[in-house]
């Protein structure tokens, strides 16, 4: 945690690449769509990583904030025809409110119990939003004709959100808050003895984390034009995948979630398209299977994730190329 320039040269190159990338794929809405999903997962992964990777509170229920964000954009539209675009802010705020309320319950729990508590809260929301048809239109979901046909503007919006989320985490981590998050993660009892109000700082971490998850949820509705409770509160497709994005990329690293998001989306697409149609069709059903194997591999051999164990990976690759010579 040295107090050098805010962004290193490498980081600026990454951000610049993100800026020009959609222009390279100007004529491929398909590629742009993938880029948009990658960015959305960067936001979700970064959000989870702040709470779990940096603060040690391993949430198994990030779908709760994602879903609340999405519904905050969708419900005023459904009932009052208010533009869902307001949701980009309101969804974040609403997710913070829910995050804070859930925090009252789940922050009384530690370790695996916290994980289960968050999982259960997201599941309760999923069921409730599916059942309360008068409010949410139930399992029929909420439909919205998206604003633009072209994908480029969506990309730049979610790209800006992704960069903002990463900047916010970076900012926090070089301040007192960041040191306190890490202290809580490493040893909560020691942290309290150092004068750290652990409850307060867990809440701060939760507020920022749930905000970004909520914004991502609102964006999802605006971009996709459809949500129902099974999609946005999904245990597997949202909560669990968010965790896996973090783990594969590297928990407790700034760029880990971004790397994890890229790997996850590309892998999924690679298999879904049956390796660009080169492989037999049955391969397309295997993306989740392969992803699961990847998770097992990473936990066993790269516990720090791709970013966290980058030195290790480099060494391994280096050794290989040396022996080949």
């Amino acid at each position: 945690m040295e107090n050098k320039k805010f962004f290193s040269k490498g980081e600026l190159i990454i951000i610049f690449t993100g800026l020009v990338l959609p222009l390279l794929f100007y004529f491929s809405p398909y590629a742009q769509g993938l880029l948009i999903f990658i960015m959305m997962w960067v936001v979700l992964g970064t959000s989870w990583n702040l709470l779990a990777g940096y603060t040690g509170q391993v949430s198994f229920g990030h779908a709760a904030y994602f879903g609340v964000g999405a519904y905050t954009a969708a419900l005023p539209f459904l009932h009052y025809k208010i533009s869902p675009w307001w949701g980009l802010i309101a969804g974040g705020i609403m997710a913070v409110v829910i995050g804070y309320l859930l925090g009252v319950v789940v922050f009384r729990l530690r370790g695996p119990y916290f994980a289960l508590g968050t999982l259960a809260s997201a599941e309760i929301l999923r069921i409730a939003f599916g059942e309360e048809e008068w409010l949410t239109n139930g399992h029929n979901g909420i439909l919205y004709i998206t604003t633009w046909v072209t994908k480029i503007p969506y990309y730049y919006i979610i790209f800006a959100i992704a960069v903002a989320s990463i900047v916010s985490v970076k900012l926090l981590m070089r301040r007192r808050e960041g040191y306190y998050f890490l202290s809580i993660r490493e040893d909560e009892d020691a942290a309290m003895a150092l004068g750290i109000n652990t409850k307060k700082y867990k809440n701060i971490s939760m507020i920022v984390s749930s905000f970004w998850a909520g914004v991502a949820g609102a964006f999802y509705f605006i971009y996709m034009g459809f949500i129902d409770s099974e999609t946005v509160f999904a245990l597997h497709n949202i909560s669990i995948i968010t965790i896996l994005v973090g783990i594969i990329g590297g928990v407790g690293t700034i760029w880990g979630p971004a790397v994890g998001a890229i790997i996850m989306v590309l892998l999924q697409e690679l298999f879904r398209s049956a390796i660009f149609g080169l492989a037999p069709q049955w391969v397309s059903g295997m993306h989740a299977f392969v992803f699961g194997l990847l998770v097992i591999f990473v936990i066993l051999y790269l516990p720090g994730g791709v970013v966290g164990d980058w030195e290790l990976i480099k060494k391994k690759l280096h050794l290989k190329s040396n022996t080949e010579k």
Binding site: V58, H236, F289, V295, G304
Partner: peptide, 24 residues
């Protein structure tokens, strides 16, 4: 590992593999 829950996360991975294998 940074997250003490890595065994739990491993069971998540195992769970996914089992479910997807059967689905396949």
């Amino acid at each position: 590992s940074i997250l003490p829950e890595n065994q739990v996360l491993m069971t998540v991975g195992i769970g996914i593999v089992l479910v997807e294998f059967m689905r396949f």
